[in-house]
Design a protein around this nucleic acid. Sequence first.
DNA 1: ATACCTGTATGATAGTATTCATACAGTCAC
DNA 2: GTGACTGTATGAATACTATCATACAGGTAT
Lengths: 129, 129
Amino acid sequence: MLDSLHIDPRSGVPIYIQIRNQMLHVIGAGMLKPGEQMPTMRQVAVALKVDLNTVRHAYDELEQSGAITIVRARGTFVAKPPSAIKGRELAARLDEHAHRFLAVAKGAGIDPLQLAQRVTQLVKTQGGK
Amino acid sequence: MLDSLHIDPRSGVPIYIQIRNQMLHVIGAGMLKPGEQMPTMRQVAVALKVDLNTVRHAYDELEQSGAITIVRARGTFVAKPPSAIKGRELAARLDEHAHRFLAVAKGAGIDPLQLAQRVTQLVKTQGGK
DNA sequence: ATACCTGTATGATAGTATTCATACAGTCAC
DNA sequence: GTGACTGTATGAATACTATCATACAGGTAT
């Protein structure tokens, strides 16, 4: 699984962003399932020849967005699906995400409505994956 | 028209981004029409008590996205087709953001459709600014 | 040509972001 | 407790970004 990771230092995209996105992809594609242990920060750091803290940065964001759970000294794990989470918590998280995306879109000079529309379109065309 | 511009230095949002967005809004709302001359960089700089180069930064992005045309020594003008605000660059960026939106939502166990819906709802309620 | 308008270029500064090396601390198996 | 694994914290080097002051250069009207 670690083999599928790779970074491009010349892309200009921060390493931790690259790691974060690839992890999201891996999780989204089901290569790592809910509850399953993520690769260790050190494993990733070594595999990518990158500093531990850089990986941590990526993992931190993943945890903040609710994708994974980090447990000190034990490891990191793919978060359980929302069905196992209470309605209120999910609603709150949804709201938080909505706000964040709004802010991001605005900051990027993108019309949020257009973005939302494009997303729904994407979901419908590619469906499952 | 310059009166409708204002920046918030404490918002954390870069000044040039604020200018760019407000210009996009002004153009999008038809307060400035295609072919019409934009306020001079200096006019904006003075009106907002901001440096000339900061305004330039904003105008540069507007030109890159195809919203305006800059002509040395003559001024800047709203681009011909109003829909040209959606240059290829911007479309590509929108797509990139849409994909990331999707990935993050999935990783967080949130239904993207629901999220998109919530975003549009937010936009409509807080609308103007 | 002069004056006055326009956008352009250069260089400095402050703040933030990114990455790293290294040391710390919790947990578990033995 | 020891050892070997986990994530955590601190501090520094570097790079990037945003902003500014100031000087330059192209047009156009007088």
